[in-house]
Structures are given as structure tokens and as C-alpha cells.
């Protein structure tokens, strides 16, 4: 155990914990938004994330012809390429999410089957997606080329403000706040909230339930896809099973904050990212999952609805 890193590298750990945490936040939105409207854990969300990482690699290598030996891009070309990869990753994940809903959940819902059937269907979709990716990539890891030089803005309070970390933190924050605003202020966002408070009463308002559900999956998928791009920008490699650990962590973040609650996912994700980074530094990285789950169990023992659980109750009938 090495507690001295906590003091010597505190700010640096905070920064990397924050960027990891924000990636968790965006993925956990995929779980939490769907849970909000359907009361269903979309287990396929981890594979929706995986699809995003593959889409990012595809744009960055296949489409631009960039290889690991090429020189880093600069200026406008860099911005274009990164933005393009972000958009494609978001779309790939968003459309996958809509397809999953359509194929795996919609019919079951129309027949009025119980939640367990949907849950098993979700696990089935998750296996189909990850196994397809395994076959297509022959189980080999896929690497993103380093498009940008990972220069540092310099050290502030001992923390290394590397460009990719800063980029992730700022963009992820912007995305989260844009989503939060959309859900609270826009007409469609209000419909999503109405459905999550009461499906029946939402229908009585003339809300087209299936359409709102599709939109919810789309938005959750877009956010998960953005997370996939950010993940590739920082960590640079992916594999068919990349979603397993990240999906589990993001799901944990959602539960920690109180599932179904956007701001809960936000604080849950950041708390988890920080916790994981700090505990890896102190105890060694092999212990990080253990710490995370010990904390999760402790929190749920004290607050079974998650940290912000009460806020959810308030918004539900």
C-alpha cells in the first residue's frame, strides 16, 4: 500500500479519475435513460459502446488511411478528422441502440410479456453483438492510430494537463449539460420525462409511446457512442469484449447515483472514476474492481435506491 501517492500526485489522479469518470457518465446515460422509460436494464448497452469504439477505429484508420506510422495530424485536418470520428461513433452506437430496441424489446413489449423475458432478450442481443465482433476481428485487439500529438498544456499543481484528457473532460461535460437541458426543457425531453413518470398517463396526453422509446434509445446510444470515441482517444485500443468491464462500471455508476436519474448518473460516474483511479494508485491496479464493488455494496446497504434515489421517487408516480 502506498498512501504517499495520494498526496504527491493528488491533482494528477483527480484529473485522470475525472476523465475516466466522465466516460462512465456518458455510458451510464445509456443505461439510465432506458431504465427511466422502460424499467429495464439494457444489458446490450455495453456492446453498443463496443460498436462505437470499432466505428472510431474504422474512421480513423480505414477512412483516413492513417496508420500507426503516419505523422500526427495538425490544425484543421486534425479537428475535422476527430469530429468526423466522434459523429460516426455516436451514430453507429445510436443506430445500434434503436435496432436493439426494435429487434429485442418492442415485440415482447407489445405482447405484454414480463420483464424477465426482455432481460433475457437483452442478454441475448449483447452476446450476438460481441460474438459477431469477435468473429469479424478474429478476436484481435484493434488500435486507433495516434491522430494527435499528446502534448501537454503544462503542469498545474503537479497535474499533467495532457491535451487528450482535457479534451475529454471538456467535451464530456458539455455533452452532459446539453443532454440535461434537452431532457428538462425540450418538448421531446418532456415527453421522455412524462413516460418515465407514468406510461399510462403519458399515453393519455397523446404521446406516441413507441416513438418516445425509440428516441430514448437513440439518445442513450448517442451518448454511449460519444463515450466510445473519448475512450479511444485516451486509451487507443479496443477489443470485441471491451464493453464488458466498461459497461459494468458504467452500470455500477448508474446504480450508485440512483438508476433512472440523470444527475445521479453524473455524480455516480465521476465518483466511480475517481475512486477507481485513486484505489489503483494506492493498492495497485489489480485491486481497483474490488474497491469499486465494496463501495457499491456499502452504499446500497445504506441507501438501497442509490445516492440520489429519493430524487427519483419524487419524479415518479
Amino acid at each position: 500500500m502506498n498512501f504517499s501517492v495520494l498526496t504527491s500526485q493528488f491533482w494528477s489522479l483527480c484529473l485522470s479519475g475525472l476523465s475516466l469518470g466522465l466516460i462512465y457518465v456518458l455510458i451510464s446515460l445509456g443505461y439510465t435513460m432506458v431504465y427511466g422509460v422502460l424499467r429495464l436494464i439494457n444489458f446490450a448497452n455495453s456492446e453498443i459502446f463496443m460498436v462505437g469504439t470499432f466505428a472510431t477505429v474504422w474512421v480513423e484508420t480505414g477512412l483516413t488511411g492513417h496508420t500507426s506510422n503516419s505523422n500526427p495530424l495538425h490544425g484543421f485536418q486534425l479537428v475535422y478528422t476527430l469530429l468526423f470520428a466522434l459523429v460516426v461513433s455516436m451514430l453507429a452506437s445510436g443506430l445500434t441502440a434503436i435496432a436493439v430496441e426494435f429487434l429485442a424489446y418492442r415485440r415482447l413489449r407489445a405482447r405484454g410479456t414480463n420483464r424477465l423475458a426482455s432481460l433475457i432478450s437483452a442478454i441475448g442481443m449483447s452476446i450476438i453483438l460481441s460474438e459477431s465482433a469477435r468473429i469479424l476481428t478474429h478476436s484481435r485487439p484493434q488500435a486507433s492510430p495516434r491522430l494527435m500529438e499528446k502534448t501537454s498544456f503544462g503542469h498545474i499543481a503537479g497535474a499533467n494537463f495532457r491535451i487528450d484528457t482535457v479534451l475529454v473532460v471538456i467535451s464530456a461535460l458539455l455533452m452532459f449539460f446539453a443532454l440535461d437541458r434537452f431532457v428538462n426543457k425540450s418538448r421531446l425531453g418532456k415527453a421522455i420525462r412524462a413516460v418515465s413518470m407514468s406510461e399510462e398517463n403519458a399515453k393519455l396526453m397523446g404521446i406516441n409511446l413507441n416513438r418516445v422509446i425509440s428516441v430514448t434509445f437513440l439518445i442513450g446510444g448517442l451518448m454511449t457512442g460519444a463515450a466510445a470515441f473519448f475512450f479511444m482517444t485516451v486509451y487507443e485500443t479496443t477489443k470485441f469484449n471491451v464493453g464488458f468491464n466498461l459497461g459494468l462500471a458504467a452500470f455500477t455508476a448508474a446504480v450508485l447515483g440512483g438508476i433512472g436519474n440523470l444527475r445521479g448518473a453524473f455524480f455516480g460516474g465521476i465518483a466511480l472514476g475517481l475512486l477507481e483511479t485513486m484505489s489503483a494508485a494506492v493498492l495497485g491496479s489489480q485491486w481497483k474492481s474490488v474497491t469499486v464493488f465494496v463501495v457499491l455494496v456499502l452504499v446500497l446497504l445504506v441507501r438501497p435506491n442509490g445516492i440520489f434515489g429519493e430524487a427519483i421517487q419524487q419524479t415518479r408516480v
Binding site: 415527453a191 420525462r193 412524462a194 407514468s198 399510462e200 404521446i207 408516480v317
Partner: peptide, 26 residues
């Protein structure tokens, strides 16, 4: 249009938002 048993107010929305959503499809 129906006023359901138990009123079916959306508790997390303001009075104005509740009214606005009554016109949702239009």
C-alpha cells in the same frame, strides 16, 4: 381525452409543464 382516476399529475413537472404536455401532440 381522459382525466384518470387518481388524477395522473406528473409530479416532477410544474403546473405549466403539466398543462403544456396536455397539448403535446399538437
Amino acid at each position: 381525452s381522459q382525466v384518470p382516476e387518481g388524477r395522473g399529475i406528473f409530479p416532477g413537472m410544474s403546473v405549466l409543464e403539466n398543462l403544456e404536455i396536455g397539448k403535446y401532440f399538437r
